[in-house]
Every structure is written in structure tokens, then in C-alpha cells.
Design a protein around this nucleic acid. Sequence first.
DNA 1: GATGAATGAGGATTCATTCAT
DNA 2: TATGAATGAATCCTCATTCAT
Lengths: 215, 215, 215, 215
Amino acid sequence: MSDTSETSEKEQPRRRQARGERRIAQLLAAAAQVFCTSGYTAASTNAIAREAGVSPGTLYQFFPNKEAIAVELGDRLMHEMRETYGEALAPVDPATPLEEAVGAAVDRFMAFNTAHPVFFALMHGPDIPGGITDAHDQLHATLIERVEGLLASLLPGTPAADITRTAHVCLGIYKAGLELVLGHEDAERAAYVQEVKNVLIRYLGPLVGDRLGRT
Amino acid sequence: MSDTSETSEKEQPRRRQARGERRIAQLLAAAAQVFCTSGYTAASTNAIAREAGVSPGTLYQFFPNKEAIAVELGDRLMHEMRETYGEALAPVDPATPLEEAVGAAVDRFMAFNTAHPVFFALMHGPDIPGGITDAHDQLHATLIERVEGLLASLLPGTPAADITRTAHVCLGIYKAGLELVLGHEDAERAAYVQEVKNVLIRYLGPLVGDRLGRT
Amino acid sequence: MSDTSETSEKEQPRRRQARGERRIAQLLAAAAQVFCTSGYTAASTNAIAREAGVSPGTLYQFFPNKEAIAVELGDRLMHEMRETYGEALAPVDPATPLEEAVGAAVDRFMAFNTAHPVFFALMHGPDIPGGITDAHDQLHATLIERVEGLLASLLPGTPAADITRTAHVCLGIYKAGLELVLGHEDAERAAYVQEVKNVLIRYLGPLVGDRLGRT
Amino acid sequence: MSDTSETSEKEQPRRRQARGERRIAQLLAAAAQVFCTSGYTAASTNAIAREAGVSPGTLYQFFPNKEAIAVELGDRLMHEMRETYGEALAPVDPATPLEEAVGAAVDRFMAFNTAHPVFFALMHGPDIPGGITDAHDQLHATLIERVEGLLASLLPGTPAADITRTAHVCLGIYKAGLELVLGHEDAERAAYVQEVKNVLIRYLGPLVGDRLGRT
DNA sequence: GATGAATGAGGATTCATTCAT
DNA sequence: TATGAATGAATCCTCATTCAT
């Protein structure tokens, strides 16, 4: 009881921050839950607050608006992804067989996304094509960056514009695949995972081959 | 002619229907516009009515709810697609080179979807994974069917389950590609179209090859 | 076919009127149906028109508004009641035993109201105490008049104000009883009918008795 | 005092609740007003909020829908009734002369209903015979129960089914009488009150008598 | 007469956000 | 910090009524 007492002048700020962090985590967890259940657009801040067991006012003490919740959620997810699979998406030894590189990347991504289904909701975002919100933009940009990094190491010497385009295509394929994977279970799910790998490997194969061929 | 009864069963009703039909077309056009601008979820029936220059009540004279608008819009799009590219998606002569078959299909699909951007909004639908609405379900089911038809002719002898899975993958790829295509213009757009073709061709190539190889 | 031809100059007006009458009857029947199903307040003119198989415009060709439909319906019901049970509610031979007079009146009223359940809906009317609408006012007034007539013959020499008050009480009892009767079936319904008679007989008994006693 | 934790569990919540309680009371008062003026069916939640001087949103912070307002209003009225006239409707000493028992009950009921005219609106409810809403159902059921209690003590030995039926009849009589009472003033009102008593006394008299007779 | 399209105010209800406490 | 009350515009949808045809 001695140093957990709130009246300890030194501890208070730290405790406050700690409490804040806890609240934020709590709110983000609730938001994840609600985003998964209802999708981003339909998710209401009140519902998130309720799910978190706090009042709407409290929510707005930590986030200026709904968007910001999604942004922070995305950031943390990306962060956790980096923490967890840190080097998995880092540039790859060009000698690694493509099958292996892609297979590992897809497996890890899928594992992560299956464990954190919000990711999908955030990637998908509000359906509108152009107007995508910041949250999704940011998440998307970060993901693209990472994929670009991977591709750059797989396809050295490829023009940046091509790398970017290929990254978009790969991410698109992955997202589409993820939707299918999440929509099925067990054997069928596994089959879809394999298909995603197939698509990516066959798509990227010739690109890698070209490079090799030119050598 | 013997009976100038209550309502002339030929002219008047047609007139009436004509006006109604025009309004319906007008409303669907407005809905397409609004769906494109705001996405299906965020689109409001009032906004659609406003866009169409009619009162909300008028909208509800023709459609019982928002969903019904999307359904009808999807139906008409599918219908027009069939009319326009009727045989383009019909089973294909297995002798057709894959490049050609896929290239033609993608070109036509893309042309149609570029001309009718609503299609994308409808395909995408409300972001929530499970809850998809009828409108999107129906559209999706119809599209899947068509793709299955195509694939069945390209990959004879393949088990139905595999055809279905492959169809889902192809449609997923196409949708992801469409998003990228719609998000770019001119040369970049063309490049993305080419990438979609590449992905599909390379994905399907081995499957066709297997068949050929087995022959 | 000769004289049913619409081109017969003389017949046309008559036919028109006849047709009009048919339409009105049709509309009133539909209104009765809808009033019963949804109550007067919740009944929509569109629903009535639909039930009648005509367009809303047609309805308004015959009735200026919803109220008027109820009024006309009430009128016709009163009319039919008079036609059917004409003398049943007419002044009664004071020698008739009260039980008999009341029993007969209740039986007939109940028979009529059971056969025409709209009557109840119209009597009940929009729930608001003071603001009762014309339709119900009129119906009510007519009913009160009739009951007053009956009572006047049963209770000769009673001041008009008392007759009126007693009439209101009797009608109130009857309406309350009707609600109960309509809410039950078979044996229980019969029991409630008997109760209504009991209430009225016992209520009126002393009044009649007074008179007799004074004789 | 060792713990100045998150929320003081004694003062603050009470404060909060106090404000809410006040709003609820205010809203219920407004609802009562509006229900009286327009009847339950025609009363709009917006009108209630306006009458209470708050925004529609505020209303929905306390009540999930219109129905709930009526239910709560009914509950509170019943509660107040019990508080105020607690034992007045409680089982009665069978030795009490019927006139006295009925007279007292009617007087109290009438006093209460005159002071709280909403009661009538709630008892009456939406005009539609079968569809009665929960609010009215509940109120009705509670009232019936109470009347049954009264009757059971007045008519010991009567089968439950008969008690129930008699209770329905008495309540019906009372409601019909209330309508008349509320529709008149001063002397005429008093006269109607007397008539209600007369009806009930004469109706119940023989039932009590039967019992006595059988003794 | 008859049609059915058109109206538009109004219904119940929700929601992101703010504010007094 | 935390609360929860407050907001008010916006949501989908209905309905009595009118009007061109």
C-alpha cells in the first residue's frame, strides 16, 4: 500500500500516464471489437465507449474523433506487426527462393491478420474509392512502404515506379485474398491461403526471372 | 373496340409506366452518382432524391428502401453488361490462347467498369465482412457464376469446388485491380490494367498448362 | 349487350352514378377493413385505396379526406342498422319487462356490431378525449339520440337532462362491454354479453322501478 | 479516505443521477401533457421533447422509444396511486357495506384520474383492438389485478374466472364512466360520478347478495 | 372518372461531438 | 480525468393530399 498510494506526489504523474495508457488500450481494444463487428463506417463512438465501459466523454478525452481512433489503432497494429515479425518483411536475401520468401511473408501476414481481424476492417475502410480517410491512408501507405522494401530486395534494379506499382498490385492481391481467407475456415481457408501464395509467386516469378535472365 | 372500358389497356398504362420508368432511370442514375461519391453505406436516400431533383417521397414510390435501389442498380448493370459484352464472358473455345482470353475479358470488364464506376461501389459494398447486404450478395453471386462459366470452359475437367475457389480468387484479383485502375489515369491506369492481366494469366497459366500437360 | 352499351346517351349518367356508387361501396368496404385492422388513426388513405384496388387519386374523387370516409361509413352503418333492426330500438311498450327490452336491444346491437366490427373502431375513434373527430361525434350523437328515444319510452316523465345522462351512461356501458365481447370468443364471449345485459338491467331497474313505484 | 479513487461512489453518482432524474421527470411531465392533448398514437417524440424544452436526442438518452415513455409513465402513476391511496384498493372487510366500499373506491380513483388525466390517455391507448401496446397492456393488467383483489374480498368463494370477468366488467364501466366524468364539469361531473357508483353498486349488489343468500 | 406520380412536412431514431460538473 | 447529459442535424421512411394526364 505504501507506494501505490495516490497521494505520493512523485508517483501521481506516472500513474496518471499509466492510467491513461490503460484507458487508451482499453478504448482501442473496444474499438477493434466494434470495428470488426460493424465495420468502420457503421461503428459509433458511443458504441465503442460502451464496449470499453467508459462514457463518451472519456473517449473524447483521448481521441479527438472517430478517425483518430482508427489511426491510432492502425499505428499500433503496424507497430506490433513490426515487433512480432520484425525481420520477416525486411529486405530479403535475393538468393532466397521466391516461393520461400513469398510463402513466409504470406504466412506471417495471414497469421497476424487472423489474430487481429481489425486489420482487415481498417484496410478495407469506408467503401468510397477516392475519399479514403486518413486512418486507412496511413495504414495503407505504411503497408505499401513495407512491401516496396521487400520487393526492392527481391527485384534489385527495378525502377521505383515499377516497384511501387508492383507493391500496390501485391497488396491488392493480398487484401483480396485475406477477405477470402477470413470468409472461410479450416481446409478451405488453408486452400485459399495457398492460392494467395500461388498468385503472388506466379505474378512475381517472371519479374525475378527477368532480372536473373538479364544478368 | 367494342368496349371503351375503364382504362384503355394499351396506351394509357404505357404512358404512365413511361413516366415512371423515366423517373426510375433518373433515380438510379442519381443513386449511381451518390454511391460513387459517398459509397453505399454513407449514401443517404435523401441525397439520392436531391440528386435526382425529386422529393424523398417520390423515391419511395419506386423503391421500398435503399437496399432495393442498390439491387435494381446491380441488376440493370448486370443486364447491360450481358447485353453489351454478351458473349465476351461466355464459355471460350479452349483453343483460344490464355493471354487472349484473359486479355479480352479484362479489357471488356474494365471498359464496362470504367464507364460505370458504380459497379465498383456496389461490388465493394458495406465494409462489414459478414453482414454484406442482399444487393452486394446478389451482384457478387452473379459475377461469380459468370466467372465460373468462363473458367469451366478454360479448365475442363476441374472439380467444381476448385472452379469455385479459382473463380473467387480471380474475381478478388479483378476487384483489387479495378480499385487500382480507377485510382489512376492515363498511362498509369493502362499499366495497372496490364498488371491485372499479367496476374491473372500467370495465375491461370499453370492451371491450363496442367490440363494441357496431362493431355 | 344492347342497353349496357356505354354509348347509350341516356344510360350513361345513370351508369356513371351506378359506377360511382359501386366505387364508393368498394372504398367504404376497404376502409372498414383497414380501420378494423389498424384502427382509425393508423389507417392510411393509401392503404385504403390499395385495399380497394384503386389509386389514391380515385379515393379523393369521392371523399375529400380521411375523415369524410369515416363519416360516410358511420352514416351507412347507422342507416343499415336502422334498416335491419328498425323497430328494435324504437320506443318500446312501457309494459315490456325491462329484462326483455334490454336483452333484445343488447342482442341486436351486439349482433350488428359483431357482424360489422368497424363500428367499434369508429365508436372508439382517435383516443384523444376532447378532440374527437367529426366522424365519431356524429356517430356518437346519432347513437345517443337513439338510446335517448329508447329510454324516454322506458322512463316516461324523466327530465330530458336525466335521460341524456342515462343515455350516455348506457352507451358507455355498452361500448365498454362491446370491447370485452369482441375480445373474447365462444362461451366467454356469451358470458360477457350476459354481463352487459346484467349491468344495464340492474342499472336501469331502479329507474324503471321508481317510475312504477310512483304510478 | 485512503482511496480517492476514480469516482467518489457516494456523492458524484448521486449528483449525476439527480440531474438525470430531474430530466426524466420533466420528460414524463411533458409526455403526460402531450399524451393528454393528442392521445398516445398521435403524440410525437419530437413534440414531447419540445414540450420538455430539450432536444430529441436528450429524450432518447433516457428512453429507448415512445413506448418506453408510456410504460414508465404508467408505472409511476400506478406507483403514486399505490402510495397515495395505498389501502383504499386493498382487500376490504367483507362487512363493509357495498355502497361504502364502491363509493370510496370510485371517489379515490376519480380523484386520482382527475388529477392525472394522462391516466385516461394511457388506459385508452391506441385505438386498435388487438394490437394494444405494452404500455397499455401493462397498465391494464395491473389495474385488473387490483380490481380482482378488491372483488375477491367482496365476493369470497367466487371462482377465479368469474372474478376476472367481473373485474373486466367493472374496469370497463369505470373507464367508460371516467370518460364521461372528464368530459363534464361541476354539477354534471358530480352527477356522472354518482352514476358510475350506481352502476357498479347495482351491478355488484346481487353478486354480494347471492353470496349472502347462500350463507 | 381514373390513374399513379409527386409532394414535403413530419414521424421515430441515431450519432459524433461538446460541456457542465 | 471522468462522467453522462445535451445537442441538433441527419438518418430512413410515411402519409394525407394534389395534380397532370
